[in-house]
């Protein structure tokens, strides 16, 4: 972890990650444990975990194209009202509008391309900034 700050009411952390499962899992655990400490419900934890997994996987696999020398930066802030996650890879980026809709009839049997759809479905806000190597996601706690 590059830096972290936590109190009873909030957590913020910045992680610079290589594509090593143990490092990625450690970062994910830090984020998820902060969410659980603030008593987000099971559905919220499920949603945030899924989006975090998909975004990190996209960053390493499609962004950095599996290059072990490249890093992914994960920044997150958790407070009682919302969770903000920003993930940036070292790739060239992509145009999110160029990703085919996996729910269209002609694409439904294609095995890939659902990560972004799931992130958008489960998070309150997903913004991909040009050139497309940085994603900002926000989850607003229901109720």
């Amino acid at each position: 972890m590059t830096s972290a700050h936590s109190s009873s009411e909030s957590f913020s952390g910045c992680f610079e990650l290589h594509n090593r499962p143990e490092d990625i899992q450690r970062a994910e655990r830090s984020v998820l444990s902060a969410i659980e400490q603030l008593e987000y419900d099971r559905a919220s934890v499920f949603a945030i975990r899924l989006a975090l997994e998909e975004a990190l996987n996209n960053a390493f696999k499609h962004g950095n194209k599996g290059d072990p020398a490249k890093q992914v930066r994960l920044h997150c802030r958790v407070d009682p009202k919302a969770v903000v996650i920003e993930i940036e890879d070292e790739g060239d980026g992509f145009d999110p509008h160029s990703v085919p809709d996996p729910t269209e009839q002609e694409n439904v049997e294609i095995p890939s391309g659902r990560g972004l759809t799931l992130m958008r479905a489960f998070m309150t806000e997903v913004v991909i900034s040009p050139p497309g190597n940085r994603v900002h996601m926000k989850y607003v706690r229901p109720g």
Binding site: F46, R49, L50, E53, E54, N57, E109, I110, P111, S112, G113, R114, G115, T117, L118
Partner: peptide, 16 residues
């Protein structure tokens, strides 16, 4: 408890 879009992709491949 959890599965990713990559797991969905594997299920589609198996279905095919």
């Amino acid at each position: 408890d959890h599965l990713s879009s990559a797991a969905l992709g594997t299920l589609i491949t198996i279905n095919n």
